[in-house]
Design a protein around this nucleic acid. Structure first.
Lengths: 251, 251
DNA sequence: CGTGCTATTGAGCAGTTTCAAAAAAGGTGG
DNA sequence: CCACCTTTTTTGAAACTGCTCAATAGCACG
């Protein structure tokens, strides 16, 4: 198995970053752009199923998802796995290992994944010289916290049906805001095992729950994942209002 | 009902902050201390059961817990409640409302509670002039994220018994690190309803689960809350290693 | 054509919930 | 200190949701 390498050449210069053109992300000043450009030291491309970071790892790198899907998870000793959240273009990965001693969760590529690589050491410069970017990093962390709050509410208090509907509506909203559905049909690249491990349900019950949602015409399980047919219906089935939208920050 | 007022006089000047003397918190430079001192605009003291911030609120303030316990929670329309996390001395409250448009969760005092009050507007100065403090705020947000990750794992994948043991071990560790158990017996000021709403269980099942833990001699439900008798035993029952310890940051 | 995932389905079981009610603990005003 | 009222803790029993076990089918890959 070939070890993934970090290419030092920037396939995608920050000036031409495709994320920057999207309406959901905030604009940068030229100075910020220059800084981020010098902060970025390379790119990393991984296949689906590859581990990006492992629990306990002390990574020297901080990443931003440039394209593709990933997910964060934790495992118990006996193999029980809980998926904590999904990372999409613009999301920061590995901030924990950068700020604290080590990662307390693992990260795996859900699809083919490209990451921008930043040097951990230079984060201090960012805080010293780019207060607005520093603020953005805090903003991103607070945003993640918000999402985790909602997931916690979901797993703790929603029924299996509501949970499943919530998760898919959530991924749809977030995926669209991240430009992941360019090609028309809205397909989230999950297996039912991923769904089960996110919802805190067994795979059998997850299957039966998804089947009911499919019978209601809200989704269709198909080629390489879940196709969303009725986002409104999912939101209603979840009893969820959706995420408040605002300009997203990213680095 | 008297509306709680923010006293503009600082009962506790930052120079004499009791948290600063504790070994778990990091030291400040004189400059940082001066800044924080000027950042703090008052103190707020609330009774147990009082709401600190409500979901949807746009608070002009940011708080740090100076003494006492609080908890964050979200509710569904039909009244189902999920407690997300607990706030203890040194913890930041209301960062979400400060960074984004509004709070997405509520905060309530669990015991008598005293908060340091900061002005939202001045946060910009902090990021501009005090990069180390800005870094600390990000660190605090990342730390909260870590805790939420662990809670998510717990609710999603641990059994009722494990969950309960985890929660109480967690509160014990964190409470001790926050100096909340000065008076000897280790008592966490919770009702079983709080425990139930944190674990995502019904109150009836929570009661039966706690009873089993009590029979094992791990805890005792008593005067105003849960008395911890065997922290090691709880950790073992939870299958949890405890939180990695490090110098905590705070403002 | 065998191997290994992923998705399905059925059946019985276990952990949790809901309903109902009683006992215990705390707080308040007299 | 007592009577009364409210909140919290306990218990029992019945109903369900979701879990485990087991087996089958569909596909992709080598």
């Amino acid at each position: 198995m070939a070890f993934p390498k970090i290419s030092s050449s920037k396939q995608t210069p920050c000036e031409a970053c495709p994320l920057r053109k999207m309406p959901t992300f905030r604009d940068f000043t030229q100075e910020e752009l220059d800084f981020v450009s010098s902060f970025k030291t390379g790119e990393l491309t991984l296949n689906a199923g590859t581990t990006v970071l492992s629990e306990g790892a002390q990574s020297a790198h901080l990443f931003t998802v440039l394209s593709g899907w990933a997910f964060r998870y934790k495992m118990l000793d006996d193999g029980r796995r809980q998926i904590l959240n999904y990372a999409m273009p613009g999301d920061l990965v590995g901030l924990q290992a950068t700020l604290m001693a080590e990662m307390q969760h693992s990260v795996e590529a859900l699809s083919s994944l490209t990451l921008c690589v930043f040097e951990r050491e230079r984060l201090g410069h960012l805080y010293r010289d780019q207060p607005d970017l520093a603020f953005d990093i805090t903003w991103i962390a607070a945003q993640e916290e918000r999402i985790l709050d909602e997931h916690l509410l979901s797993i703790g208090r929603r029924t299996a049906m509501e949970r499943a509907a919530y998760l898919l509506a959530f991924l749809t909203q977030r995926g669209r805001a991240s430009g992941l559905f360019r090609d028309d049909p809205t397909v989230v690249p999950l297996t039912q095992q991923h769904v089960a491990d996110t919802l805190g349900l067994s795979i059998v019950h997850t299957n039966k729950t998804l089947k009911k949602l499919a019978e209601r015409g809200l989704l269709r399980w198909g080629e390489r994942g879940c196709e969303i047919l009725d986002e409104e219906g999912l939101l209603k089935a979840a009893g969820w209002e959706g995420m408040p939208e605002s300009k997203r920050r990213f680095i």
